[in-house]
Design a binder for these strands. Structure first.
Lengths: 134, 134
DNA sequence: TATCTGTATTATTATGACTAGTACATATAA
DNA sequence: TTATATGTACTAGTCATAATAATACAGATA
């Protein structure tokens, strides 16, 4: 979903945005930042590309990216220094990890729907195992 | 999510629509029809409420419901007889069951994201078991 | 015949995502 | 100091989709 690039001397990441997707661009962007934090591609206190430079890279309006950054700020995943730049917060990874655990809820919904559709427990579990060990 | 009612002598179902939801009304409606088929609340060849009567029940525009019905038609879950009414197709339940198995894909996505977030396999599996046996 | 049913069409409204343009204050480096 | 890059804020406009509104027509049935 993304590849590393080098930008102005700072190693960073290059999100792939699908403008045709039903998911809003700003949500896709947040998703990829979080993903790269988990992957270790983005470290604490590392500087993120500015709204303006990223908007050029992705051919996306700066406001769209600012919206994404504001949401990351709200979640304490990054912090901004006016005039200086935007950085990954200390503890960002653990915050993302905790947030991702909320995926257990949609997981439960899917399991209950699969059960209703007649899927067997062992079938679901083996699917989970297979995917996990991939 | 829904409760049984009796309408014009025909036992049917009464979908609960959340107009504030991000999910379109017509998708919510389809979801509940499918759910009630799986639950056995709607049988094969059973007549569905007409676009007009259902629109009154749900305080929703007839066109919105027609859109939902057309999609159910497309999936061969129901069929319509102009002038007569709309009915659940033979084999509808098995079609819905097959369709619901597509939920395995988002299930896999969630599992891989949970893995990335550091969740352990046994933790995921016990969550699945717990939900399944609920 | 009256009334129910599905079907089709056009127009309008509401909302959210996105874009466009501008402005201003702060931090940093030349 | 000055120039430039940064974040921030604001207003307006575009675009697509969902939903509504209103109407019309044809088939089935009591």
């Amino acid at each position: 979903m993304s590849e590393d690039i080098t930008l102005e001397g700072k190693t960073t990441f290059f999100p792939i945005i699908d403008k045709q997707s039903r998911n809003p661009i700003y949500e896709q962007f947040i998703e990829q930042v979080e993903r790269n934090i988990l992957l270790g591609n983005i470290q604490e206190n590392e500087q993120l590309p500015s709204v303006r430079s990223m908007s050029v890279l992705l051919s996306v309006n700066p406001n769209t990216l600012q919206k994404a950054y504001i949401e990351l700020e709200r979640q304490k995943i990054s912090y901004s220094v006016p005039g200086s730049g935007r950085f990954i917060a200390v503890g960002a990874k653990s915050i993302v990890m905790k947030e991702k655990l909320k995926l257990l809820e949609p997981l439960k919904v899917i399991v209950s729907e699969l059960k209703l559709a007649g899927a067997e427990l062992n079938f679901i579990i083996s699917t989970v195992k297979e995917e996990f060990n991939k």
